[in-house]
Design a protein around this nucleic acid. Structure first.
Lengths: 141, 141
DNA sequence: CTTGACTCTGTAGTCGCTACAGATCGTATC
DNA sequence: GATACGATCTGTAGCGACTACAGAGTCAAG
């Protein structure tokens, strides 16, 4: 089982990772340079696993550097779980901060659209909001 | 009042937009090329207003192309409010989609960290999750 | 007259891909 | 044998939105 040497196209199909991206990962050292059959890259089951790992980590929003670190820890095995936890918790913090940012944006945008629908303002609520100056609360002009 | 010709550093200070970015905006045509006093750029109150507008729109997550469009509509005045609404509503949709993505990430990450803290698993929960293959739900192996 | 703060232009780097161009390879068909 | 096709190869350049230099010039105060 799994004496399956596959080409890059098949690896792409199995992982959902596009071909150019696979070669890019190889260039930056995230995927190892595979052996060649002729001049075509020849991949095995381990590559499918590793690339799937990369792809799923990316879907969770880890940067490529973080993915690199995770791969290192995954290879290490054993005591690395604590270190993985640190990485994941830090990244979770990032994600939550980004959510908070986006929610602030959402609120302002939704308010503006609502004000626009209400149609009470003389001008355009969003344009007005963008021209406002929250930087100098008083001090007249 | 406001016969104030200011230099780029002062514009930067007043808008919170960094100097290199101001020059960048000029290069890409988002800000007009100001007159020069000697060879230094000389800005006025209108520039402070426009750049503030750009910055606030960026804080709401609009792309530079969208900001360009908003600036055009803001200048147009009058009937443009409906068009602004369209832009804002579309962007609001984007923001909400990004929030949804991030929440999915948050959930998975938080689950993994929690599983990690529980410490019941034999391996590392996050590493295991990244190695899992949600692409083939059954089909054994 | 020198120091220091400011500004200038131009170019290159960041991140994570994506999109070519143009060559080469392997197989199937006429 | 010729040829067409699909897949792959290398190498380079582009995206968005900045950011970070290097190296030159400008200006006012001490």
């Amino acid at each position: 089982m799994a004496d399956t040497a596959i080409q890059i196209g098949e690896l792409s199909r199995r992982t959902g990772c596009n071909i150019e991206t696979i070669r890019y990962y190889e260039r930056i050292g995230l995927m190892p340079a595979p052996p060649r059959r002729g001049r075509y890259r020849s991949y095995g089951a381990a590559d499918v696993g590793r690339l799937g790992f990369v792809r799923r980590a990316r879907e969770l929003g880890f940067t490529l550097d973080e993915v690199r670190a995770l791969l290192g820890l995954a290879a290490g095995g054993g005591a690395s779980c604590a270190e993985v936890r640190v990485l994941a918790a830090a990244h979770l913090g990032d994600v939550r901060a980004r959510i908070a940012d986006l929610r602030r944006m959402e609120r302002v945008l939704a308010d503006s659209v609502r004000a626009c629908d209400a149609g009470q303002d003389p001008g355009c609520p969003l344009i007005d909001a963008l021209y406002a100056e929250p930087r100098l609360p008083q001090t007249a002009r």
